[in-house]
């Protein structure tokens, strides 16, 4: 099947790009090791069990976003700069199949990255897997991956060159990752504007929802509406992510060009 073969070629390309592999697959594990060393991994008073129990899901989300947002946007824009997209457009291959293959391939890469971080957390840092929340966690990763893939393609659609795309994705992801409880676990109340900024964008919702799947203090499997603060529900975060994902898809479909000279 042509879609399957196209996914395979896209995966081959990724695994032959050492820089991309390092940032998407190795970096989250390195950050997990560094942060647990710097902050210590002992049990901390309060609801969190350990540093690793917080950072493992947070860095899994970071890996997923690196794959689906940064790598997809930059690699697609680079292929466009190189004329590869224009060339593909001149073949009988359906453009939909080609773009779907790119999205599926980064989703696979994202899952590999997430599995490696979580496995490292579980085996080396005593992270506890909460299996009753596992299915909800998978749904979060899936929706989050697709949302950030749509955002990546929207950025690629709005910027002409791969250099601009690279700058925009990094400039949007890194500061937000600090505000969105991905890199920093806030030890005190953040300023109001920071909280509101982070609440507006999808990254925090992705991180919080997936982090909740690793919070032993929450009850339930996640597939519930409402409930108080002690109940695990993925519905509010999924809703915000889905709105961003749909908006980004519309922008990408409307503005994406296969060659900027055409």
């Amino acid at each position: 099947m042509i879609l399957f073969r196209q996914v395979r070629y896209q995966l081959m390309l990724f695994f032959r790009r050492p820089a991309a592999m390092f940032f998407v697959i190795i970096m989250p594990v390195v950050l997990l090791a560094l942060l647990t060393q710097i902050l210590g991994n002992e049990a901390i008073p309060g609801e969190w069990v350990s540093t690793a129990q917080f950072y493992t899901p947070a860095l899994a989300v970071f890996g997923v976003v690196s794959a689906c947002y940064i790598y997809l946007a930059v690699s697609t824009a680079t292929s466009r700069d190189q004329g590869v997209l224009k060339r593909i457009r001149g073949t009988p291959l359906s453009p939909t199949v080609y773009m779907t293959a790119r999205i599926i391939s980064v989703s696979i890469i994202a899952f590999i990255s997430a599995i490696i971080v979580i496995a490292a957390g579980v085996y080396f840092l005593d992270v506890e897997m909460l299996w009753e929340k596992f299915a909800a966690g998978c749904v979060i990763l899936f929706v989050g991956g697709l949302t950030f893939a749509a955002l990546g393609l929207a950025v690629a659609a709005m910027c002409r060159s791969s250099e601009t795309v690279q700058a925009v994705v990094n400039a949007t992801l890194l500061p937000l990752a600090f505000l969105s409880e991905i890199f920093i676990r806030p030890g005190r109340e953040l300023p109001d504007w920071m909280v509101r900024t982070a609440d507006f964008f999808p990254l925090k919702h992705f991180g919080v929802a997936f982090g909740n799947a690793f919070r032993p203090s929450l009850d339930g499997h996640g597939f519930t509406f409402g409930g108080d603060d002690t109940v695990f529900t993925i519905v509010p975060e999924l809703t915000v992510m889905a709105i961003w994902g749909i908006a980004a898809t519309l922008v990408a479909v409307r503005f994406f060009k296969w060659d900027y000279k055409l």
Partner: peptide, 18 residues
């Protein structure tokens, strides 16, 4: 139509890692 034409574009357009 695309099945029956062949293209060689002005500039090289190939994925360098394949």
């Amino acid at each position: 139509f695309r099945e029956r034409i062949g293209l060689v574009l002005q500039s090289t357009a190939l994925e360098p890692e394949l």
